[in-house]
Amino acid sequence: MSLIKSDERTPLLEVQNLKKYFPIKKGIISRTVGQVKAVDGLNLTIYEGETISLVGESGCGKSTTGRAIVQLDPQTEGKVIFKGKELSTLSSMELRKIRTDLQIIFQDPYSSLNPRKRIGDLLAEPLLAHKLTDKSEVSRKVDDILEIVGLSKFHKSRYPHEFSGGQRQRIGIARALILQPKLIVCDEPVSALDVSIQAQVLNLLKDLQKEFQLTYLFIAHGLGVVKYISDRIAVMYLGKIVELAKTEDIFKNPRHPYTQALLHAYPIPNPHLRSRERIVMEGDVPSPANPPKGCSFHARCPLAQDICRSQAPALQGDEHTVACHFPLG
């Protein structure tokens, strides 16, 4: 079910028809009265060595997708196939083993580090838990990884609260990196940092990718951050991918009205270049508990026709896929 055909690249991760529903419970016997369809039929193929970004506004299911991929919140339906193995069918032992190749970096650097553990122990723990390294080697490896992410070995005896947000995020990156994974899901790794630190962390991620041949699934809520780091961008709306293309295609030639609206929301620093008319979206994202019939974007779409209200468009196209009855361009 690969959406982008490519002969020379090998898929590392395939997500097939991923669905994640959260039950809405009510009453004293907690009867399920409905479901929040956080992710509703998502297909995605990630190739080795690329950075693919998942973009969309709050509540569109991008973090849920990331968490389902690393099996933190297992999916309701669908398959996550990593290195040829379907993750939900693995035993807990096999899953634990495969997790060494599949890591996640969290959004909030303040809650992602255990406040009771020193940085040295925090980083040594994964190595010891998987018995991947000789005990004598562990300390040296921790020193190495700290240096790689721009910290020093004298930081090892410190507790997380003694670091700044940017430093903590780099510790989080070091922790994800120390098992030498193949794929790292970056769940808005820079959203909680201020802009100057954002650039540092993004550069670090880029450098690490070159050095360790990493593959990233990069989750972000704006296109700005993503432009700089990704090879391909997938735009999500209400639990589905609405457009997926190479970064430059998304920016130069957006085909989905939602992508276009997102691009218009991305500020242009130079006032002389601000000649374009701006499209500002009206209204809010519909509730994922009660998604609209037809195209999920039709209520906010300036181009909506009758067919949009009755029929959901499928993703179409080879290199540049879009789910829209009346694609732009």
């Binding site: 933190l72 997790r99 060494t100």
Partner: peptide, 17 residues
């Protein structure tokens, strides 16, 4: 529900740990 516990799961630690 804290991220550092989720990170522990993602790092493949055993449940008792």
């Amino acid at each position: 529900e804290m991220d550092y516990v989720k990170a522990g799961v993602a790092l493949g630690y055993s449940t008792p740990k």
